[in-house]
Simulated scan of single mutants.
Amino acid sequence: MVSVVTHPLVQHKLTLMRDVRTGVKEFRELASEVSLLLAYEAMRDLELTTETLETPIQQGDFPVLTGKKLALVAILRAGLIMTEAIVTLVPAAKVGHIGLYRDPETLLPVAYYNKLPADIAERRVFVTDPMLATGGSASAAIQSLKDAGAQNITLMCILAAPEGVAVIERDHPDVHIVVAAVDSHLNDHGYIVPGLGDAGDRIYGTK
Rank of each mutant, 00 (worst) to 15 (best):
V127Y: 01
H7R: 06
D171K: 03
A39G: 11
S144M: 15
V110T: 08
A150V: 08
G205D: 03
P109M: 13
V2S: 06
D129H: 14
N187Q: 00
L196V: 10
L159V: 14
F62M: 12
D183W: 02
D171R: 02
M131Y: 13
T154D: 14
A92M: 08
T55M: 13
F126E: 10
F62N: 07
Y40G: 01
I120D: 12
K68C: 02
G23W: 01
F27R: 02
K146S: 09
V165I: 14
A181I: 03
I120L: 14
L80G: 04
M43R: 13
A118G: 11
D171I: 05
S144F: 11
T106A: 10
M17D: 01
Q59K: 15
I75H: 06
E26R: 04
A93K: 03
L70H: 07
A93I: 04
A199D: 07
E47F: 14
F126R: 11
E47H: 15
G23M: 04
L132M: 15
R18M: 02
G197N: 03
K146D: 10
D183F: 03
A160R: 01
R124G: 01
G190Q: 02
A31C: 11
G60H: 05
G200H: 04
K207D: 03
K13Y: 12
A78Y: 07
R170M: 12
V24M: 12
L108M: 13
V178C: 00
G136P: 06
A39F: 15
L46P: 00
T6M: 08
S35H: 05
H185A: 04
A148D: 14
T50K: 13
Y112H: 11
Q59Y: 10
L155Q: 09
A93V: 08
V34C: 08
V127C: 07
A180I: 02
M131F: 12
K69L: 02
V73A: 04
S137F: 09
L186D: 02
I120S: 10
I98D: 05
A31Q: 01
S184Q: 10
A85C: 09
I120E: 10
K207S: 01
L53G: 15
G164C: 03
D61T: 13
T15D: 14
S3W: 00
K25D: 13
L159N: 07
H176C: 02
Y101R: 09
A93C: 12
R77H: 08
A74W: 02
Y113C: 15
N152F: 12
